[in-house]
Structure formats: C-alpha cells, structure tokens
Computed example of a mutant assay.
Amino acid sequence: MQWFGKGSEDVEDRRSGGGGKTILGGGIGIIVVVLGLIFGKDLTGLVGQLPVEGAGQQTEAKTGVPEDAEGRFVANVLQSTREVWEQEFQKMNQTYENPKLVLFRDGVQTTCGYAQSSVGPFYCPGDHKVYIDLSFYDDLKNRFGAAGDFAQAYVIAHEVGHHVQNLLGISEKLDQARGQVSEKEYNRLSVKLELQADFFAGLWAHNAQNLKDFKLDEGDIEEALTAANAIGDDKLQKQATGEVQPDSFTHGTSAQRMYWFKKGFETGDIKQGDTFNSSNL
C-alpha cells in the first residue's frame, strides 16, 4: 500500500514512558477476550467499558503526526479511515466522530482501566480511543506469519470498526446482554460483533481505493486475509492446546473472519454487514 498525505493529527504518542498507575474502578471490570486471558495474547483486543473511580497517573502524550516511520504509517491509516467513514456517515445523514489513536509501550491507563501490551490492540468505548503497542506487529509477522503493511493496516481498521459500532449503538447489543444470557450465548454475540468489525475493515479497504492520498498495491488484500486467517479462534486454540472449543469462540473462526472481511471489501455496502441477523455464521 502507498500513502501520500500528511496523516491524522489525532494520534497520541505515549511511547516515551510507562502506562501510569493501575487504578481500576468497580462495576463490570475490564473485559479482555477469553483467548487473551487463557493464552496471554488477545490478537485484536476488544476492551469493554469500565467506570474508573480515580484517575491514574498518565504518561504525557505528544499529540499529532509522529516523527518516526511507524508512527507516520499509523497516522496515515487513521486518516484514511476517517475519510472513508465520514463519507459513510454522510450517506446515513449522521456526523462521524474520529477516534483518537494512542501509541504506547508495555501498558497504558485508559477510561476502560489499565491494559498491558499482552491484550493486543484494542478499542475503549469509554474514551473513544484505539490503543496499540506497535510491538504487536512483530508478533503478527514472526509468530503468526502475517507480514506486510496492509496486514498492519487491517488491524487498525478493525479497531476503528469497533468505534463505528459504538457510534451507531451496535455495541450496546453486547452490553445489554452482559449478565442476562449464558456464557455460550454471550460468546456467540461477541463473535458477531467481531466479525462485523472485520466487515467494516473490508468496507474501509474497498473505499480507501478511491482516496486521492491512498493506493492499494497488488497483494495487499491477500495480506489482510492472511492476518484474518492467522487470528481465527479455531486456529489459535488448535495451536495453543491442540483442541478446538467452539463454544468459547469470541472472535470467529479463520474462515469466518476472512469471509466477512472479503465481503466488506467486495461490496463496500454497509447494509451487507449485519452479522447479528446473518445466517452465514
């Protein structure tokens, strides 16, 4: 992929220090995907909203386009998601609010609680921010065999997809179900939420092709599909334990993740991404 613009100013760079004190409030607690708790790595990282009783010591952040190449790349991907989703929200007669993207190392204090790098990239609905420790990309390449800049862009677009779900009120489906349904049913709803975020990432890729400051290269979509395949629940469980337990899936199988990303890319139509009412699950 190629980008030619300056990049989004909505990047907070907290990589110069630690993540602050660990202060967690009461209530529902920080939600990390089950696979992350079991295997020590959440590969797409959805963190649920947590009321915080006190503010932790925050690392001073530099806001704007980072100076290093990795940071500029992230800023350009974020800018492309903004341009795509602004257009999509205009079609729905709504106004898009761009999320902030926070770069950090090791751990970070958020409105959703304290998170370590081991949870992977995640979106916090409480502060409308995407969080990522860029060392995750090393894992994506070396541990899971999903190399390439577009695989990295897919990760960001997926988390921005969670932000879109939050703005549209879709995430409330999962919030409302918490404590009201069985663990099996809750996991099923989580899968639907995650697959829709994959669809939204595909929709972004479809529309990003038409942006003046962004260009897809041959093989880019294959990079994203390789990443989606690598982080399917079935593949991760098989690698970690040698067994697959479908009732514990929270993100979807490799085949499902590839299917929904590809569907988003091929259609570019947000109306085709209702995973909650789809029979293809």
Rank of each mutant, 00 (worst) to 15 (best):
M1R: 08
Q2V: 14
G5A: 15
G5E: 15
S8D: 09
R14I: 01
G19T: 14
G20Q: 01
G25I: 08
I31L: 07
V33H: 04
G36S: 10
T44V: 10
G45F: 12
G45W: 02
G45T: 04
L46C: 05
L50I: 08
A55N: 09
Q58E: 08
A61N: 00
A61V: 00
A61R: 03
P66N: 03
E67V: 11
D68W: 03
A69D: 06
A69Y: 06
E70M: 05
N76M: 08
V77I: 06
V77S: 00
V77Y: 03
R82L: 10
Q87D: 04
Q90V: 06
Q90L: 15
M92A: 13
M92P: 11
N93T: 07
Q94C: 07
N98Y: 12
N98R: 10
K100M: 15
L101H: 05
R105V: 13
G107W: 10
G107V: 06
Q109L: 15
Q109D: 09
Q109S: 07
Q109F: 13
T110I: 10
G113P: 05
A115D: 03
Q116L: 10
S118E: 03
F122I: 13
F122C: 00
C124I: 02
G126N: 05
H128C: 11
I132Y: 00
L134R: 15
S135G: 15
Y137I: 12
D139G: 05
N142P: 02
R143W: 02
R143D: 15
A146V: 09
F150A: 02
A151C: 08
A151L: 00
Q152V: 12
Y154H: 10
Y154L: 00
I156M: 07
A157F: 04
H162G: 09
L174K: 02
L174N: 12
D175K: 05
A177D: 08
G179W: 14
V181Y: 07
L193T: 06
E194Q: 13
L195R: 09
A197F: 12
F200V: 03
F200S: 01
L203Q: 11
W204H: 10
A208D: 14
D217Q: 10
D217M: 09
D220V: 10
D220T: 11
I221V: 14
E223W: 09
A224N: 07
T226Y: 05
A228Q: 05
N229Q: 07
I231M: 15
G232S: 09
A240W: 15
V244Y: 04
G252R: 14
T253F: 11
S254K: 13
R257D: 04
M258Y: 07
W260R: 04
W260F: 09
G264F: 08
T267V: 09
G268T: 11
D274T: 06
N277E: 14
N280M: 04
